[in-house]
C-alpha cells in the first residue's frame, strides 16, 4: 500500500517537472536528470520544454495567420481565410469596444495573446501521458521530464504578464510624461502632499498586483486543470470499474476544460487591453 502511494506521488511529481537545462553548482551547464539537479540549478536554469512548446505553438499561429495575410485580398474568403478573418474581426471588435485611444500595437498584441494562449492551453486536452511517453521513448530515458502545457508553467504566464507590465509603464510615461506618471503614483488616491508615502505604497501595490494576478490566474487555472487530468490518469490503473469511471471523468473534465481554455485566453487578452487602456487614460 505504501509502495503504491509512493509511485502515485512519484507519477504526479514526475508529470509536474520540467525538462530543465541550467548551471550546476560547479559552474558547468547541462540538462538536469533528477529533482536534486533542478534544486541545485535554482534560478539559473531554463525550462526547455516550456519554451519549445510555447515557441512552437506561437510560430504555428503566426505562420498560419501570416500565410493568410500574405494572400489577403478582397476576393471571397474561403476556408482558412474565413476562419482567420473571423478571429481578426472578433479581436478588432473587442479592442475597439475597450480601447479608445490611438495605438496600432494593441490590436495585434491582443490577437497574439488570444491565439497563442488558446493554443498553449489546448495542449491540456492531449491525454497527459502521450507526449511525455513519446519524449521518454525518443530520449531513451524512463525518467525524462517533459511538460507539454506551457501555460501550466508560471515562468511562461508571468513572463508574458510582466512584459505587459513593462508595456503599461512604457505607455504611461509616453502618454502622460514622466511627471504625469509620477504624479499619478504620488497623488492618488489621496491628493495631499502629506499623504504621498501612503499613496506611493498603495499605487505600487496596485500596479504590481496587475501583472501578478494576470499571470497567476492563467497559471492557476491551467495547473489545476492539468492536475485533475493527471489524477484521472492515475485512476486508469485501478481495475476495470475505476478504468470505466476514469474514462467518463476524463471525457467530462475535457469538455468542461474546453470552456476554461477559451475563457482563460479571453480573460488574459481582455485584462491586457483594459490595463493598457488605463495606461493611456490621462484623466485617470
Amino acid at each position: 500500500m505504501a509502495g503504491e502511494a509512493q509511485t502515485s506521488t512519484e507519477y504526479i511529481k514526475h508529470h509536474l517537472t520540467n525538462w530543465t537545462y541550467g548551471r550546476f553548482e560547479d559552474g558547468t551547464w547541462g540538462f538536469a536528470h533528477s529533482y536534486e539537479d533542478i534544486q541545485e540549478m535554482g534560478a539559473m536554469s531554463v525550462h526547455v520544454d516550456s519554451l519549445l512548446w510555447s515557441f512552437g505553438l506561437g510560430a504555428i499561429f503566426l505562420f498560419l495567420f501570416w500565410s493568410v495575410a500574405r494572400k489577403a485580398s478582397t476576393a471571397t474568403p474561403t476556408g482558412m481565410h474565413s476562419f482567420v478573418e473571423m478571429v481578426v474581426e472578433f479581436i478588432d471588435n473587442q479592442v475597439k469596444e475597450t480601447f479608445h485611444f490611438k495605438n496600432p500595437v494593441i490590436a495585434p498584441l491582443a490577437l497574439t495573446l488570444f491565439m497563442w494562449i488558446l493554443l498553449m492551453n489546448t495542449m491540456d486536452l492531449v491525454p497527459v501521458d502521450w507526449l511525455p511517453s513519446l519524449a521518454m521513448w525518443a530520449a531513451n530515458d524512463s525518467h525524462f521530464f517533459f511538460k507539454v502545457v506551457p501555460t501550466t508553467d508560471p515562468n511562461i504566464t508571468l513572463g508574458m504578464s510582466f512584459t505587459i507590465f513593462f508595456m503599461i509603464i512604457y505607455y504611461s510615461i509616453k502618454v502622460k510624461g514622466i511627471k504625469g506618471f509620477m504624479g499619478e503614483l504620488a497623488l492618488h488616491p489621496f491628493n495631499h502632499w502629506s499623504m504621498i508615502p501612503v499613496n506611493l505604497f498603495l499605487e505600487t501595490v496596485n500596479m504590481l498586483a496587475k501583472p501578478i494576478s494576470l499571470g497567476l490566474r492563467l497559471f492557476g487555472n491551467l495547473y489545476a486543470g492539468e492536475l485533475v487530468f493527471i489524477l484521472i490518469a492515475l485512476m486508469f490503473g485501478g481495475g476495470f470499474m475505476l478504468f470505466m469511471a476514469a474514462g467518463v471523468a476524463q471525457w467530462v473534465w475535457a469538455v468542461f476544460h474546453i470552456l476554461v481554455i477559451v475563457l482563460q485566453a479571453f480573460v488574459f487578452m481582455m485584462l491586457t487591453i483594459v490595463y493598457l487602456s488605463m495606461a493611456h487614460d490621462e484623466s485617470h
Binding site: G58, L62, A69, R70, L111, G159
Partner: peptide, 26 residues
C-alpha cells in the same frame, strides 16, 4: 528562473511580427 526572460523575449518578437506582417494586411 530564466524561462521567464526567454518567454518575455519570444513574446515581444511574436507581437512585433504580428503587428508588422499579419494584422495590417488582414
Amino acid at each position: 528562473n530564466l524561462t521567464l526572460i526567454g518567454q518575455s523575449l519570444i513574446f515581444l518578437v511574436f507581437v512585433w511580427f504580428c503587428w508588422q506582417y499579419v494584422w495590417p494586411h488582414i
